[in-house]
Nucleic acid binder design. Structure first.
Lengths: 229, 229
DNA sequence: ACCTGAACACCGTTCAAGT
DNA sequence: ACCTGAACACCGTTCAAGT
């Protein structure tokens, strides 16, 4: 009797899962940023004592790594093999896909930046990027350097986004962000920083997708120049 | 009598300074990384109670911002105005100068990434970079976009460095780092990640100055292509 | 202005113990 | 295997008080 009853209703003694803990951690990070991620808060979120978390993750760092992997795994990397596209278009599209998921999960970006690129999704992304470049005509060594330059550039851009846009469940409108940033820029003294002041309207949109795309294309332009003609 | 005596020897009641606290904070971060930076540890380092720190900094975030500014201020940005150099060479050299100080202070890089670019040194760097680009023939709007692309790329690269190289007072040898990284790369399955495996020797040197320079030059190549001919 | 003592509401992690 | 209770050595920050 007790066994079937326990299986039927999720009683107070029901067992948690690793995925449930990662989900709770992701929710905390998305809502309130990386500083809000604590073993104790995750435990409370799933209705368990802090120590119970150590059944699933040996350290807080392991939990953070699982959060990073879980977020990265959400990015749609399909453009890397999409037929009918050349290497440039493939890399640009995958860059935009990465931006899309990391802007939504901007609270996790600091965790991503602090972690080595050794998770399954990172390895997969790296290998497939190399494939695109090699198929595009680049020597493997050049492809490797290009892949690294692209990924660090993308992460640097998203770090800037995450540093400026507060965490939250939704992605704020670009126009609203630009208006805020413009107001801040107009407070800096134009006499001492004339070019900064003169370009404020452009700078106010640095967090936008267009400037992101512009930066990625700049790298792709540089790469195209390296292709053996 | 008591007044001169107090001035003569630094007794237990001597007053601290903001700079002394920032120095202590920098030492902690350099030695043990950003996680080691705490109000209480800084207070202990200068021989004072934790609360005393709040006389100088209203929050821990303010102390962190002061650390970031102090580290950035150490970079030699002189190349931006060095006579006899074109815009490319100036930007490359200042990029290398930034790398040099941030590699030494890699423990502070996560703090830098999390902070907005509004400190005196950041503003100065931005304005002078715009000047170089405008003098080089770029339209102000393009110069602004280029400046942002360069700085985010540089920071992304240094974030990767900081994530992989443990904090410490000295800068480790590149050969030693490459050997460690190569060993780690050889543990990933070559069958599943053939290109990753094939390029391991190149990838093992991703943290080096040469790859950094390669990435910056890639952006500069892309920029050069935008110059009105 | 500069500092201390005491306290509050937190942390990550460990140990021993229970089912 | 999965969880709890108690404890340790930490946090940032505040309040009241002293010089």
């Amino acid at each position: 009797m007790s066994e079937t009853a326990a299986a039927a209703r999720p009683g107070p003694r029901r067992t948690r899962s690793e995925a449930e803990l990662v989900d709770a951690a992701r929710t905390l990070v998305a809502r309130s940023g990386p500083a809000a991620l604590s073993i104790r808060a995750v435990a409370a979120e799933v209705g368990v004592t802090a120590n119970a978390v150590y059944t699933y993750f040996p350290t807080k760092a392991a939990l953070e790594a699982a959060v990073v992997e879980s977020v990265l795994a959400e990015a749609d990397l399909g453009a890397l093999e999409e037929p009918g596209l050349d290497w440039r278009e493939r890399l640009l599209r995958v860059g935009l896909a990465l931006r899309e998921t990391l802007v939504r999960h901007r609270g996790a970006v600091p965790l991503l930046l602090a972690s080595p690129f050794t998770g399954p999704t990172s390895l997969d992304l790296g290998e497939r990027t190399l494939r695109v470049l090699v198929d595009g005509g680049f020597a493997p060594g050049v492809a490797a350097r290009a892949s690294y330059a692209l990924i660090t550039s993308v992460l640097g851009n998203l770090a800037a986004y995450a540093a400026e846009v507060p965490p939250g469940d939704d992605v704020p409108e670009e126009d609203a962000l630009a208006a805020e940033r413009l107001a801040a820029l107009q407070r800096i003294p134009a006499a001492a920083f004339p070019l900064t002041a003169a370009t404020a309207a452009v700078t106010a949109r640095f967090n936008g997708e267009e400037q992101y795309r512009w930066g990625v294309e700049l790298l792709l332009d540089g790469l195209a120049a390296q292709l053996p003609r």
